[in-house]
Write a protein that binds this DNA or RNA. Structure first.
Lengths: 342, 342
DNA sequence: TTGTACGCGTTATCAG
DNA sequence: CTGATAACGCGTACAA
């Protein structure tokens, strides 16, 4: 590995000169700069990231931590964040905690191997974040309100507990005996929509039958298929509507219903959440929920994060972001029957 | 930020003593170690990653570079690699190059910000890898044979050009006028299956009608829907079979066919590739191709990579891995008609 | 058992 | 415009 020292020696220059030349510092004559660059290329010089980081006390990196990158629901977020971070010149890396693999994420947080972290999973504890966030190492939490007294752990996109729109929709369409299927227990979506579900039911004076709350154990299509086959099929007669806490498991369950010749929505209404691409392809297409949070939102988010990194928090922008409530909308397709019409 | 210096001062010890104590070096008395650890916790000491990396000339990091983490096809690979790297104590991070965002990946490669890189995309050029790989910075390429003279760029899981099994299958079932739909042009899967397609056709003496080769422009479900609607629908009568280079676009296209009341496989046979979860949920379920490359394979792969990192290449293991040809199998579902039977 | 001294590769500050 | 020197935070021989 050739270093600036080597090229300094080769050129009979001081290391500092070489360093500056390499960074195109105006203080160095154009000629010298040219020479240095040339030699550098010739000697296949590449700068050492660790050394730069150490000296600058900056990594230029923003780390995004989430549970499962393959969930279609997160793919949009990933892309948006990548665009936003790139706009501001940051590097962007993803750490996945699927299967309990939190070590990498935690080490990067503890050892400050990034300038900031964006956490979109419950698998990293609020305590850890509280412990390690600081003025020069801000942590943004997405999807829930982190419990913390650390002012540098900021929460965004954490919908307040509100009635669950999918539930409201089913009720509006005349459903009364409504079941609920939970996804990965450690996900915010599951917890939140579960709470929303209970809220909606109670507000309409409807009882929640705990035996009609099914746990898929995970948030992937296969999990949806399995819970449908093993737990839901036998209870179909006890419900007129079934809410899934996300589309992934709903799509899997739809497959199961098809395999068992259960006609949706004649036999039972089904509704999902997130509007992932595959939900449009089920038979019949899945009615679901969509929520708007465009590229612009993520750009603002990263801009705000950047302001924290630069130690000049843009409190105004932060306020705007925190008051942001994403608009939710039912995507009406063909898995919910209007029971009022008969 | 408190450093070992600070805690050394506080305890009237030498930095080196503190350093060793922190690393539980036997040379330091148990009592001192306890003391140091205590003080460290008290002062909220956290070690500085960059400094450690610089000194050790190791990052303990393996970087995985791919185009789009949300593609269901890659999710299994990600998970397997994560498990495998964790087994050997490495940190594991993902860099996504979707939308041309290669900067991060390239910078990490150039500046050696990882101990090794696994590349599973065409978006990082072979030249770059060739230029930066070295004995102490191995690069493993997945999915294609990298063109390089650098012995530290190793290729794996690069199927030889062979007849395309899905095509063979269609032909066996009596199809003759076969169309082909390509996904993201920069993906290996697309290129390879395209070549296999041509090979199969020619081996059976069948002409390839170039106007029946459709470009979806991307590998996501939406891309499949769009190409079906805009290009394929009008050509349905000119084909009896249609091959998609991956399931994602096939699933999207199936949705389109359903929307337009095209009955599959009566009107046309359809076959995909990869057997992603969603392919089982289309109406009717998609016939597709699956290939086996289990956890064990990835564990071996990472073990081999590790041997390179440790500068003791396990050539035997490497050989075994390189000769590995994944078993391919048709997953027979309901989108291919047997034309011989009528 | 502990301390000293040095190096890892880079940048920044100053003096010349 | 260029050079010497001191950091950055840590690990490790070697000496005490």
């Amino acid at each position: 590995m050739t270093s600036i020292k080597d090229i300094a020696k080769e050129l009979n220059l001081a290391v500092s000169t070489v360093s500056m030349a390499l960074n195109d510092n105006e203080k160095i004559s154009k000629e010298t700069r040219r020479l240095v660059h040339e030699k550098a290329k010739e000697m296949k010089y590449v700068r050492n990231g660790a050394a730069v980081d150490l000296q600058k006390q900056k990594t230029n990196l923003i780390l995004f931590v989430l549970y499962d990158a393959s969930r279609s629901f997160f793919s949009y977020t990933i892309k948006s964040l990548q665009i936003a971070t790139a706009e501001l010149g940051y590097d962007f890396l993803i750490s996945t905690t699927y299967g309990g693999h939190r070590n990498t994420a935690e080490r990067f947080i503890k050892e400050r191997r990034a300038d900031a972290v964006i956490v979109y999973t419950k698998t990293i504890s609020d305590e850890l974040l509280t412990q390690y966030a600081s003025a020069d190492f801000p942590v943004f939490v997405l999807g829930h309100d982190a419990v913390t007294d650390n002012p540098y752990v900021k929460s965004f996109l954490a919908p307040e507990v509100r009635p669950l729109l999918t539930c409201e929709y089913l009720i509006e369409k005349g459903h009364r005996r409504i079941g609920f299927v939970t996804g990965f227990a450690e996900s915010f979506g599951t917890v939140r929509s579960m709470n929303g579900f209970r809220l909606s039911m109670s507000r309409h004076g409807l009882p929640v039958d705990e035996s009609l709350i099914f746990d898929a154990g995970g948030s992937q299509m296969e999990d949806g298929y399995n819970v449908a086959e093993k737990q839901i099929l036998s209870r179909l007669d006890d419900m007129d509507g079934l809410i899934f806490s996300n589309d992934d498991i709903a799509v899997g369950a739809m497959k199961c219903f098809n395999d068992h010749n259960i006609v949706i929505p004649d036999r039972i209404s089904v509704i999902g959440q997130h509007n992932i691409p595959a939900s449009a392809t089920t038979m019949p297409p899945l009615t679901t929920l969509t929520s708007t949070s465009g590229q612009e939102l993520f750009s603002k988010l990263v801009k705000c994060l950047d302001s924290y990194i630069r130690m000049e928090p843009d409190l105004e922008l932060e306020k705007e972001l925190q008051s942001h409530q994403s608009e939710q909308m039912i995507v009406e397709r063909q898995t919910v029957k209007d029971l009022n019409k008969r």
